[in-house]
């Protein structure tokens, strides 16, 4: 499970994340959506322990990431949006590096790594230098590395960038399978159809504030929309919020 309380982060005068309270239960997939610059990546990086919040707490399982970052990170598999890797290692060598870093047993490594590479259609490329990989292949390699140490929590920033349709289908299937086996997912994305298809719950962030959260049905209720897909709900909610923020005394009146 992932829990944040009163999470706040500022960049100078810009309030990137504003008192964010979230709860993602074990075995679920939580989608985090919002317009550009809403605070998604900042939130993701705080959850992954890449940047520290100014205030607030983050619980990864039962570990406070600020109190014990190493123990918390041991439980996380992080997949960033841009696949920067060590270009002079081969795919298999990179997995070995990750395995050693996260303390994966050496005895079962080879079999496990090859299984994962096979799952991500990278087995034929395992001994090629990463510099020869395409963008999508690098993204798949990062995903392979992220699940290699069997993390309880997987944090993903824009999971489908660079993947082909077959890759997207495979990743969606894999994420669902892992969530059903008890892994917790926190996914930030701009691709609303993926959030709609894949996520159990969705949170919408705008200007650093969580403006709505729940299942798609919950969001529809909050948006007073009886029908329509996530895109319509998202646009309605974010537009309303922008309006309310630009006219502070509008009293919630919606045009």
């Amino acid at each position: 499970m992932i829990q944040t309380k009163n999470l706040t982060k500022r960049y100078g005068s810009l309030l990137a994340v504003d008192r964010l309270d979230l709860f993602v239960p074990k075995g679920s997939i939580f989608g985090f959506i919002g317009p550009n610059g809403a605070g998604k990546t900042t939130t993701i990086k705080m959850l992954a322990g890449l940047i520290e919040p100014d205030t607030g707490t983050i619980l990864i399982g039962d570990t406070d990431i600020r109190q014990n970052p190493e123990k918390a990170k041991q439980q996380i598999g992080f997949i960033p949006d841009r696949p920067y890797l060590y270009e002079k290692l081969t795919g298999l060598e990179f997995l070995k590096f990750t395995a050693d870093l996260y303390g994966v047993e050496e005895s079962g490594f080879r079999k496990k790594a090859e299984n994962i590479l096979d799952k991500f259609s990278l087995i034929d490329w395992k001994n090629e230098l990463i510099e020869a990989y395409s963008h999508g292949m690098k993204q798949r390699l990062i995903m392979s590395a992220a699940i290699l140490h069997d993390p309880k929590i997987i944090i993903v920033d824009e999971p489908m960038i660079g993947l082909d349709p077959a890759g997207i289908k495979m990743v969606k299937h894999l994420f669902r399978e892992l969530a059903d086996s008890g892994k917790t997912f926190f996914i930030s994305t701009h691709t609303l159809s993926i959030a709609q298809d894949l996520c159990d719950k969705i949170g919408i962030i705008q200007k650093g504030k969580l403006i709505a959260t729940g299942t798609l049905e919950d969001l529809k209720t909050q948006a007073h929309a009886s029908s329509g897909d996530l895109e319509a709900v998202f646009l309605k909610l974010t537009r309303e919020e922008s309006f309310q923020q630009s006219v502070p005394d509008a009293g919630g009146a919606i045009p």
Partner: peptide, 9 residues
């Protein structure tokens, strides 16, 4: 990012 996100100080 691999270093920062890893469980190594």
């Amino acid at each position: 990012w691999i270093v920062s996100s890893s469980p190594i100080r």
